[in-house]
Amino acid sequence: MSATEHPTEHLAEHLDTHNWTGALRRRALRELPPDRLLPDSQPAYMSSWIYLFGVLTVAALAVVIGTGCVLALKGPQWWHLSSLGHYVNSMHLWSVELFLAFMVIHLWGKFFMAAWRGKRAMTWMTGVVAFLASIGTAFTGYLAQQNLDSQWISTQAKDGLNSVGIGAYFNVMDFGQMLMWHIVLLPAAIGVLTVWHLVLVRRRGIVPPIGAVPPEDENTSEKEDRP
């Protein structure tokens, strides 16, 4: 390679590389080109406040994780002993209430839009699994509080889990096990599911209105909107 060659020639050469890495990059670029991953425009039919609840859910998740990380920094006892710790715990609780509220409203909205249409079933399903994983994460959070709530919830919930054989392996009265699930395993699962969900949304685009047909005699620019 001489320095005089045009940079795109390097790119072209790289794109032709027949190794695993090159293949993965080509696949990624084909499935999700940068302008689809981070588009600076959106379909004209996205004209409703209901679309905000997806991004609000992600924003609340960010606050949940952020406040959870502060609690993790100081350890599980901190919030019982310090007023600042108790305040961070309050933030963690209220951001979880917001997270689940936003997510459920997002779910209602996507249901009434039948948002699984047009090869978007996997987007719907990753969302549902993320919802169930969030419920599990919140539940293990209640178990990890080390107060009357945790005592009562664990001794009650054990019966349900034991009745279907899960309790033998997932012991809600084992504080250490529940704390690990709450701060490692389930958040990791939610993180993976969220990224997967968002990538699928970007890859397929936002679902068009039911029965909508793209205006054929117009190009896909913003000036189309005038009939």
Partner: peptide, 25 residues
């Protein structure tokens, strides 16, 4: 269901929306 990318678009700033959402929440 037709491809969403075949529809007309209008400018929109996703990153700005996300930043505002995080600050608001």
């Amino acid at each position: 269901t037709p491809d969403s990318h075949a529809f007309p678009t209008r400018p929109y700033d996703l990153v700005k929306e996300a930043v505002i959402a995080v600050i608001a929440v």
